[in-house]
């Protein structure tokens, strides 16, 4: 703290800030008591609105009261760190994971749903990334010019496929989803992937290599040795990615 600010001034500022977070009537000097509540209301509304806008699917999954309590507890017990309010909701994920075990038990796919929803915000807003230099377009022999604003998500619940309220333990398994930002519209797209194509895209995003060069690995890991069939499937997949602007 600055050497100028007296402890008693700091104390007044701290009490007002604490009141905005926990709603407990503060001992503040010289205030207009019936107006102080507006600060708590205004501050909390900003936080709750930001959370609600970022996680509409989680809002729909939780009971109304559960969501209200979660927002309240998050703001009261978690010191928000990001100066940019639109980034702040990401901090809810670790709060739920570390502090709200009962919600994670009641809704085993809640954490994954929050992460999934945050990916949409993150990809919609994130800084632009440079595309790799496009190579010749032989989808078998050349490395693909993949959209750098993309990522393969590995999921245990089909949060990208089903209404979160319909997901149960019976759905528990392995799912893969490609998330990418459309180069022209800026919209975020999600594409369900098979384990093989998830692996292929993840591998090629990590290192630009051609499908052909991966043949030995594909045979070892997936037991696929039918090269004509593989070329045909990869070609179809490539066309799909080109039409979706995941490949230039």
């Amino acid at each position: 703290m600055s050497t100028h600010l007296k402890p008693e001034t700091y104390e007044q500022q701290s009490r007002l800030a604490a009141y905005c977070r926990n709603g407990e009537q503060p001992a503040l000097d010289g205030i207009t008591p019936n107006r102080i509540g507006h600060y708590r209301r205004l501050v909390f509304n900003v936080v709750k609105d930001a959370l609600t806008r970022s996680y509409p699917l989680a809002v729909n999954l939780l009971e109304e009261e559960e969501w209200a309590i979660l927002c309240n507890d998050f703001f009261e017990f978690h010191p928000c760190q990001d100066p940019q309010v639109w980034k702040m909701p990401e901090e809810l994920i670790s709060f739920v994971q570390q502090e709200r075990a009962h919600l994670c038990e009641k809704y085993p796919h809640l954490l994954e749903l929050l992460r999934f929803e945050w990916k949409e915000v993150e990809y919609y807003m994130m800084p632009d990334r440079d595309w790799p230099i496009a190579s010749k377009t032989n989808e078998w022999q050349d490395a693909w010019s993949l959209n750098p604003e993309s990522e393969v998500l590995s999921l245990e619940y089909p949060v990208h496929l089903k209404n979160a309220r319909q997901i149960s333990e019976e759905d528990h398994g392995s799912y893969y989803c490609l998330v990418f930002r459309h180069e022209q519209t800026g919209k975020v797209h999600f594409m369900n992937l098979s384990p093989f194509f998830a692996w292929l895209i993840a591998t090629m995003l990590e290192t630009p290599v051609s499908p052909k060069s991966l043949l030995p690995v594909i045979e070892a890991q997936f037991g696929i040795s039918d090269e004509p069939m593989l070329r045909e499937q990869i070609s179809k997949f490539h066309q799909k990615l080109v039409s979706d602007r995941m490949i230039r």
Binding site: Y39, V43, C80, P83
Partner: peptide, 10 residues
């Protein structure tokens, strides 16, 4: 204040 952003003007 106290290492927590409040996102409004106190």
């Amino acid at each position: 204040c106290d290492n927590a952003h409040l996102y409004d003007l106190l």
